[in-house]
Structures are given as C-alpha cells and as structure tokens.
C-alpha cells in the first residue's frame, strides 16, 4: 500500500532523513516512533507531498507522490502535528470545505454525518471552531483526514494535548479505522503505540533502527529475560542457589519485606528459559516462593537502548537537526 525506498531529505547540509525504506501493507496500523527531531514529521511530510524528497521514492497505492502528486494525495488523509483548522469557520462549514477541496464524490450529507458520528463531533457540528476545546479541535482535525474515505490515513501525534479519556477514545478510534484503512501513526508516546499498532518502526537521527511486529519487538531487543522473584527463607542462601542454576547470567537482592521474604532480580542468558529450573531449585530446597514475575523489557527500555546506540557516521556531523 505504502512503499518507501531509500528516502533522503537534506535541508542544506543537514540530513533530516538519511535513507529510510519500509513498506506498509493494506489494513495495517503502523506506529512511527522516535525522539524529537528524529525525522518522523519530515518523513510524513514527504509521504504526503508537503515536502519533496532529496532522493528516493515514495509510492502510495502504486502512485509515485512526486510523479503524480494530485492522484497520490487523493489516497491520503493527513492530520498534521497541528490540526489545520480555519478557526473562523463552523465545523459544518469546515468539513464541507474539505469535502469540496478533496473533490469528493460520495454523498455529501451522509458521508459527513458518518464521519461526525465516528469521531463524535455531532454535537458541536454547528459551532465555530475557535470556541471548541483542544480535544474537539483535535477530533475535527481527525474528521478532516477522514473526509473522502482515503485508503491511507496518516496521523502525526494525534493525541498530543488530550486528556486521558480522550486519548483512550482516539486510540480506540484509530483501532477501528485500522479495519478499513491503512494507518500510519507517529508519536513519541510509547504505550500508545503498543496499544494500537500492529507494527512499530523506530527511527532515530533520520534512520530506521527497528521495524518489527509489536508482539515481537520485546524479544528482538531483550534476548535475555528478566524475572522478579519473591522467596521466603535465608536471603544469602537463596541468592547462591539462584546463581548456581545454569542459564542465570545475573542475580541480585532488590529488597526484603516484613513477611520474611526477599525479592530477587534474576537475568537469564540470552535465549535460555530458566523459569522451570529456577522454580525447582528454590522449591527443592524447601523455601517457599510467593512471587514470580516476568519483567520482559518494556518499550521504554527498548526505545532508549535503540535510540542511544552510537552511530558514528551519522551522529557526529550534525549538531542540530530540524524538528523531524
């Protein structure tokens, strides 16, 4: 559906996007993740035809965005970082304007009503956008992207500035959209991606550093498994027993509680499942295990580890990269 090949964007001698390639299949929800200035917005701008690429090709549904921009743009609904709203218009006028702007052929009344129901703005339909709250404005922005029922929907940080309830609503909305649309979602809020996306692409300093299915992404970066144990018994002996289990790479005491129990952090060697052996080692010595928790690296750890990796050829040259 979306195919990006070796996309490069230079602003003068600053490299904002340094040759990234990925594909997004139809009906997929892809999370585009990266620290500020990583090149997320720049990539999206190139994908939507707002900026041109210095090198490389972006095709949407087989249409090259530079060769046939008008046809390609028809396939895309885009919510930029700042929702592009005409504050002096009412929601109704605004959506009708978008409808005309995109030269839609769907039934106007019906289509706009459906969109308003989907993003829940029916009750503010006749109000002037200037008077709407941030959450409603954001939703009008989303509604704008949905007009014309585009095949591809691109959201740039859609939940910024919303309250927790609204964030959950928007996330659910995006999930729903994923059933009929291909969605790209850029954000630096990690739980959001985990909650919504089928696949995660992490970008840093203009390069893709990870491109994995959401459920696989933990394993990719944490070959070793981390466990938290709570055991009743003499702490020192237990620690020694844990360390003697084959496959344990590291173990330490991380605390004790009044129940005469001690908490241990245990890290396995990469690719070894030590859970059974660990349990048996404790129980066979007559100690009681009252807690056993797998700590699987969370997205934050992954994010930090991936983003902090030194990249000698890219990192040093540029001091400041334009907000990406």
């Amino acid at each position: 559906m979306i195919k990006i090949e070796n996309l490069v964007k230079r602003f003068g001698d600053k490299v904002a996007v340094a040759g990234i390639s990925f594909t997004v299949d139809e009906g997929e929800i892809v999370g585009f993740l990266g620290p500020n200035g990583a090149g997320k917005t720049t990539t999206m701008s190139m994908l939507t035809g707002y900026l041109s690429s210095t090198e490389g090709v972006a095709t949407i549904n087989g249409i090259n965005i530079l060769e046939d921009p008008i046809e390609a743009k028809k396939q895309i609904g885009y919510l930029p970082e700042f929702p592009p709203l005409y504050l002096e218009m009412t929601v109704k006028e605004y959506l009708n304007f978008i409808y005309d702007l995109k030269s839609c052929t769907l039934n106007r009344e019906k289509h706009l009503k459906e969109i308003c129901d989907t993003v829940k703005i029916t009750d503010v339909y006749n109000r002037v956008i200037r008077n709407l709250s941030k959450g409603y404005r954001q939703r009008v922005g989303i509604a704008q992207a949905l007009v014309g029922n585009p095949k591809v929907i691109i959201f740039d940080e859609p939940t910024v500035g919303l309250d927790p309830k609204q964030i959950i609503e928007i996330r659910n909305l995006i999930k729903d959209l994923g059933r009929n649309h291909t969605v790209i979602l850029s954000t630096h809020i990690l739980p959001e991606v985990q909650a919504v996306c089928d696949r995660i692409i992490i970008i840093n300093k203009g390069k893709i550093v990870a491109n994995e299915k959401t459920e696989n992404i933990d394993e990719l970066f944490s070959g070793s498994r981390r466990l938290c144990l709570k055991v009743c018994g003499p702490a020192k002996d237990i620690l020694n027993a844990i360390r003697s289990v084959t496959g344990v790479a590291y173990a330490e005491i991380i605390g004790s509680s009044d129940l005469d129990s001690t908490s241990f952090l245990v890290e396995s060697m990469p690719g070894v499942d030590i859970r059974k052996m660990l349990f048996n080692a404790i129980v066979s010595r007559g100690w009681t295990m009252i807690g056993f928790e797998s700590m699987g690296a969370n997205l934050e750890d992954i994010f930090v580890s991936v983003v902090d990796q030194p990249e000698p050829n890219v990192g040093k040259k540029r001091k400041s990269v334009r907000k990406g």
Partner: peptide, 14 residues
C-alpha cells in the same frame, strides 16, 4: 500562521 497551509499543500490541488 494558522498552519492551514499544510492542508492545502497536501490536498489534491495543484
């Protein structure tokens, strides 16, 4: 200023 420029430039209009 209103950032609506982006809307026009990403719309199917030359």
């Amino acid at each position: 200023k209103a950032r609506t420029e982006q809307l026009l430039l990403t719309s199917p209009v030359s």
